[in-house]
Write a protein that binds this DNA or RNA. Structure first.
Lengths: 137, 137
DNA sequence: CTTCCTGCAAAGCATTTGCATCCAT
DNA sequence: ATGGATGCAAATGCTTTGCAGGAAG
């Protein structure tokens, strides 16, 4: 179940301005990750849009609040996506660049073994899978 | 056992110029990952150094050849480090920023299940573990 | 009113590239 | 000699910031 834009802004402690509502609404509607620039482009395509700087500022605030995730698939740019809170990883298709979420993460047992073997405390992990998706094969 | 600079350059199919030798020698001497700029700074501190552009060009070539790994812990910059050729992943300490290589990757069975379930062909994967290392705890 | 937000343009960084020169083979 | 390598500076691309005008509580 997806939260609506104003709820998400409230959760982040941000004023629900017209621009921010548009930005978050676009995020809600976007299944894949987007860069700030892509998000801005989509907003422009819909009509009068917030400025690019506002998009950046808003995404930064949302990330600080834990409402969105910032991912670094490609060096040199950040990808954002609403973060549902549930643990998952991403499969990126090298042909169409689509992103598929993959739940069912089976790393935990491995991580526990690692912690034991190397003596470090693992607090998080990120997995990126690369390949070709069903429609592109 | 660490290979020496000229061996590594030969492995990457690059001419062993004075500049490249200096760059790789610095990498050999560096246990943690470094950005191109940090590497350049260290070279400068040692005396006459290759230009920054050369450092970038060399690291890019070395990465293509699989001699170094490029990591994206921080957004907006790449970190490089010499890497053994065997399959492994990285654990990054959030306190000292040290990097530990972790072999013993147990993702394969999971990946096969995923391929079956979603119909995509997984050609590669990358795992980054975050946490606190043994000495920093 | 007072504080926070926005837009625009300029500034900042990390990285890449163009081009003339230089070195290794 | 000849193709690849280097240096420098300019260009690029993403992101951040300064500042003056505007909207929200």
């Amino acid at each position: 179940m997806l939260a609506d834009a104003s709820t998400l802004l409230a959760a982040a402690g941000l004023q629900p301005t017209r621009q921010r509502l548009a930005i978050v609404a676009e995020l809600v509607r976007e299944p894949n990750d987007v860069t700030a620039q892509e998000l801005h482009d989509r907003l422009c395509a819909r009509g009068p849009a917030p400025g690019l700087a506002t998009v950046y500022r808003t995404l930064t605030r949302l990330e600080e609040a834990g409402v969105v995730d910032a991912l670094t698939h490609h060096a040199g740019e950040l990808c954002y996506r609403l973060c549902g809170g549930d643990h998952h990883h991403h499969f990126v298709c090298s042909s169409c660049h689509g992103v598929v979420e993959v739940g069912d993460c089976r790393l935990e047992p491995w991580l526990e073994d690692l912690a034991d073997a190397h003596g470090f405390a693992v607090t998080g992990h990120r997995v990126e899978l690369e390949g070709v998706c069903a429609t592109c094969r």
